[in-house]
Computed example of a mutant assay.
Amino acid sequence: MMLDATRQQALSVSLATGAYGLSFGALSVAAGLDVWQTCALSLLVFSGGSQFAFVGVIGAGGGPWAAAATSTFLGLRNGFYGVGLAPVMRPITGWRRAWAAQVTIDESTAVALAQPADHREARRTGFWWTGVGVFLAWNAITLLGALLGSRIGDPADWGLDAAAAAAFLALVWPRLAHRRAQAVAAGAAVLALALTPVAPPGVPVLAAAAIAILAGWGHPRLEEVPE
């Protein structure tokens, strides 16, 4: 019964998160990437916040190095998630270990650690079902968004020029329920706004990401995972 409930939760999260891939695909094409480059980002990077940051920097006129650095900083949080998940996933070796690393994201971590601490199988089920579910949905819907985005003309006519910020906010909003996260987010936002008039494109976002990482925003705590 518990495993069925866990799978149902994982599928719900997968579909809800995967839907943002439509916005990412369209925004990526609008920023100048082609369909295949957009799909490669989702397949290889597979981290919504990092991907939106990458195309946001490119779309604002930033260079590829600034975009890659910003994306990397935001992606470092997944390494912290791996530390928190290690006791749940052991023992794991070979290709399963590599696959687990690829699908260690916000959602798979949250669903896994939201299960009872004494029910290891439910935690592992939550991790795998959510990680793989989001991966499949995100990549499929990214492709759809990229194909649609290449055919709709000027993205500003459809409001897609603001979609990256809106989708990114929707992705991080559930993680701002605690005062520490709110304080870090506010500090990062103030720094980014202060740097925007004087810094090259991409640098404000990179600085904000650095603040979040240094403050340990991405470090998973059991009491901070939503039930």
Rank of each mutant, 00 (worst) to 15 (best):
T104H: 09
F46S: 04
S42P: 14
L143G: 13
F52T: 11
A30I: 07
R77P: 01
L33T: 08
N78P: 00
R90D: 06
A86S: 13
P116M: 10
F80K: 08
T142V: 13
F80C: 05
A68I: 04
L136V: 15
A162R: 15
A137F: 14
V88G: 05
L43M: 13
A60E: 09
G126V: 08
G63S: 10
G131R: 02
V88T: 06
G79D: 06
G56M: 04
L143I: 02
R120D: 14
G145P: 01
V111M: 08
F73V: 15
T109D: 08
L144P: 00
A68H: 04
N78A: 13
D34Y: 10
N78L: 11
Q102P: 03
F80E: 11
A101F: 15
R151E: 09
A137M: 12
G94V: 02
D118A: 14
I141H: 03
W138C: 07
G62K: 01
F135Y: 15
T130D: 06
L27T: 15
V29W: 12
A69F: 13
V111P: 01
G153A: 09
A100T: 04
G48R: 05
N78T: 11
G131F: 01
W158L: 12
T125G: 00
W128S: 09
F80D: 10
A26N: 06
P116E: 09
R90Y: 00
L41K: 08
G84C: 05
L76G: 05
A86K: 08
R97G: 06
D157E: 15
S50C: 02
A162I: 13
L76S: 11
Q37Y: 06
R120M: 12
A98S: 13
A112W: 03
G48Y: 01
R124C: 02
H119S: 14
A66V: 04
F127Q: 03
T109V: 00
D154H: 00
S28E: 05
V134G: 04
G25A: 07
D161M: 11
A67S: 12
G62N: 08
A163T: 11
V35N: 13
W65M: 10
N78C: 10
G56L: 08
G126Q: 06
A156F: 07
V55N: 00
A117C: 06
W99V: 05
G62M: 05
R151L: 10
I152N: 06
R77M: 05
R151N: 12
I105H: 03
R120S: 12
Y81W: 09
D154Q: 11
W65C: 08
G48M: 09
P155C: 12
L147V: 14
T72W: 15
A156R: 10
G61A: 04
T125H: 05
T130M: 04
S150A: 15
A162V: 14
A163D: 04
V132G: 02
D118V: 05
A164W: 00
A156S: 15
G84I: 00
L41H: 12
A110T: 06
T125C: 03
L85F: 02
S50I: 10
A110H: 06
S150L: 02
T109S: 08
S108T: 01
V111N: 09
L144N: 08
L74I: 07
